[in-house]
Design a protein around this nucleic acid. Structure first.
Length: 241
DNA sequence: GGCACAAGTCTAGCCAAGAT
DNA sequence: ATCTTGGCTAGACTTGTGCC
């Protein structure tokens, strides 16, 4: 059975709190700071413990092969607009949690076909992927509640979601590179076409266009053929703007 | 190896509000 | 009145890690 993991509503300010402390405090200090910080939002100790683990996994204890981009994002965080900062959390959450990524991908595909999406439809698809269990319902609800809190979708009535009137503009090359990484993670590859990046359902709340000039020349190499332009990644080389 | 502990994951269930 | 949905929680199970 595939693990789910993401089972609590996570708020943007909670993710911001950890992000702003990276590189400034020790691991133990971060754990106690976050626990104290979360007391304001979550009273139940068990739920708080769950949310704590999720938030730390997204920004602090990221997988080894994501530490390069995480550190790059932390040092360039201040260059992003407030809307882009929300998108940054979106992308990091998709890296940390395949469940989150698969759900927003499916959600994005649905929003291409219709203005409204019912949570029932999404729960059915997630149960298809992760098994028919209560756990999947809880987690799907947690993803909806989180991205609603982050302002990427609106709930117009119980169980029915719509996109906001305005999509989030993504101009920063910092974020665009992260989006390429997210898509490569999703597809489990080191090579994607420009067309795939610019049409991925995972980024449905974003208004963006990625061109080769947005990508760090050392980390990404560009391969052109007759039909498309491909981005290939060298995972060992760090980022630069 | 065996143990204790922490972190991560999960089941089962409660309650409130709104829809049917 | 009953069902559905969203939000929340207690506590159990599993896995990883450090120490003896």
């Amino acid at each position: 059975m595939k693990p789910v993991g993401f089972d609590q509503k996570i708020q943007l300010h909670q993710l911001d709190f950890v992000l702003k402390n990276i590189g400034k405090v020790s691991n133990n200090e971060m754990h106690s700071l976050l626990d104290h910080y979360l007391l304001n939002d979550i009273q139940g100790p068990a739920s708080r413990r769950c949310a704590h683990a999720i938030i730390m996994k997204i920004w602090w204890s990221v997988e080894q092969h994501h530490t390069l981009i995480r550190d790059y994002l932390v040092s360039n965080y201040s260059l992003l607009s407030s809307q882009e900062k929300g998108s940054l959390h979106w992308c990091m959450t998709t890296l940390a949690y395949p469940f989150f990524r698969e759900q927003v991908n499916y959600l994005g595909k649905n929003f291409r076909m219709a203005d409204e999406v019912r949570s029932k439809t999404v729960v059915a698809e997630m149960k298809n992927l992760y098994g028919d269990r209560r756990r999947v319902e809880v987690a799907t609800g947690a993803v909806f509640a989180s991205i609603k809190n982050w302002g990427f979708i609106n709930m117009i009535k119980p169980g029915v979601y719509m996109l906001p009137n305005e999509k989030v503009n993504i101009d920063s090359p910092i974020l665009k590179q992260l989006m390429v990484e997210v898509l490569m993670e999703h597809l489990q590859t080191d090579s994607v076409s420009l067309e795939m990046v610019n049409n991925s359902a995972i980024f449905f709340p974003f208004n963006y266009h990625i061109s080769i000039g947005d990508l760090a020349q050392d980390r990404f190499s560009i391969v052109r053929n007759i039909r498309d332009t491909f981005i290939e990644r060298n995972p060992k080389i760090p980022y630069s703007v």
